[in-house]
């Protein structure tokens, strides 16, 4: 092969590599864009919820960097309207300012207090957590929460929330949510042992606490921030 042919061949290979690189980057962008948009359009807030949690690590029901020094634990019932109010008004600044910076992680644990649907709903959230979408499930459930006196959280509703939250393997989610009901009973028992009588209730663990300590009065973001400072 002459020097000229070799040069031509190398430049053709380089041009091919450029086209391949452009194709790969475009595919990566399209795949990532479609992941965030997904979900059930009949639900409210699907895009907002998935967007707001995009990029924050999730491990089971823990939101945030696993190495974060402070762990804030929330005990909540998905059907509880106060929990919805906290999720939408109190926790977002903590997530934005401390969880995203890796200073705090938040663990969501279920404390069933409303009715018989609270336990399967909590187990459904835990099953979503197994696929890294637990917090998406919880936040989307709150966005679409119904009247606490009504039995709206049936299987069809839970499946719609799971789909909207971006749970990829729905058959796995479906089989695991039944298995996880004992875990809901365990976190409910844990909340009772900590002396909590209502939801949402919070506990905290950090370098300056002796294990998991209940936060007795939480009226707003400021109380949680003070507890985080005290535990850091």
């Amino acid at each position: 092969m002459s020097e000229g042919d070799r040069r031509k061949q190398l430049l053709q290979l380089a041009a091919g590599a450029v086209f391949l690189a452009i194709a790969v980057v475009l595919v990566l962008i399209v795949v990532n864009a479609s992941e965030s948009e997904g979900g059930d359009t009949r639900l409210e807030g699907t895009r907002e919820v998935n967007r707001s949690l995009q990029g924050i690590p999730q491990n089971e029901m823990v939101l945030g960097d696993p190495q974060a020094p402070v762990e804030l634990v929330e005990f909540a019932d998905l059907k509880c309207p106060y929990c919805k109010a906290f999720a939408e008004g109190v926790l977002p600044p903590i997530i934005e300012n401390q969880v995203k910076k890796g200073q705090v992680k938040i663990s969501y644990r279920v404390y069933t207090i409303i009715d018989d649907q609270s336990q399967p709903a909590g187990a459904a959230a835990f099953a979503a957590g197994r696929q890294g979408r637990g917090w998406n499930f919880v936040e989307l459930f709150y966005r679409n929460q119904g009247n606490e006196l009504k039995s709206y959280a049936d299987d069809e509703f839970l499946e719609a929330i799971a789909k909207g939250a971006g749970v990829k393997d729905l058959s796995r989610w479906n089989s695991e949510r039944a298995e996880l009901e004992p875990e809901v009973e365990a976190t409910t028992a844990e909340a009772q042992e900590l002396g909590f009588t209502g939801t949402p209730s919070f506990a905290i663990m950090g370098p300056k606490t002796n294990g998991l300590q209940p936060i007795r009065t939480v009226g707003g973001t400021g109380d949680l921030e003070a507890a985080i400072v005290g535990a850091s």
Binding site: G55, I56, P57, Q58, K100, K101, G102
Partner: peptide
């Protein structure tokens, strides 16, 4: 997380992200 200039939180947010 790497320190951003001018007090920006962007570096910590990106470093802590799942990406």
């Amino acid at each position: 997380a790497p320190s951003c200039l001018a007090g920006s939180n962007g570096c910590a947010t990106v470093a802590r992200s799942s990406y």
